[in-house]
Amino acid sequence: MPSFVIAEKCDGCKALDKTACQHICPNDLMVLDKEKMKAYNREPAMCWECYNCVKICPTQAIEVRGYADFVPLGATVTAMRSTEDIMWTVQFRNKEIKPKRFKFPIRRGVGEGQVKAFGHYPTGDGNLKSATLMCEPAGLNTEKGPVKFTAVPKL
């Protein structure tokens, strides 16, 4: 079932004010069975296998089993996401192929929640009716370029 919940591991996010998987799923698929206090994917055939529920589950109770109608059994892809990077493990169906492990950064230099939207560059003319956007024209330039913009370019 694309994403599936391991019954033993899911605690229904008891400690949180809302279930993390239900909160995050962009297609509104994860729901909590309040009697069992276990989550499940209510429409597996609408799952994009985006892994957002997998990445957010505090008890690592969610995994993905490739779509049964075209994916042979036996392979797994698992993700462990921290605040700065993500670790992936890819296990092949053929166990003779060595599993692959990758670690990639996910954000650089700015801590979670710390993004400052404004103020990175001065804003040119402050004119609501002009073509100049916030942080322009200065923000169009880099240290590398030979061209320096003092106005928003035209064709």
Binding site: A45, M46, W48, C50, A68
Partner: peptide, 12 residues
Amino acid sequence: GEGFGRSWYPPF
């Protein structure tokens, strides 16, 4: 089948 949701463009 189960892979109905695996469209290139997101089903949502």
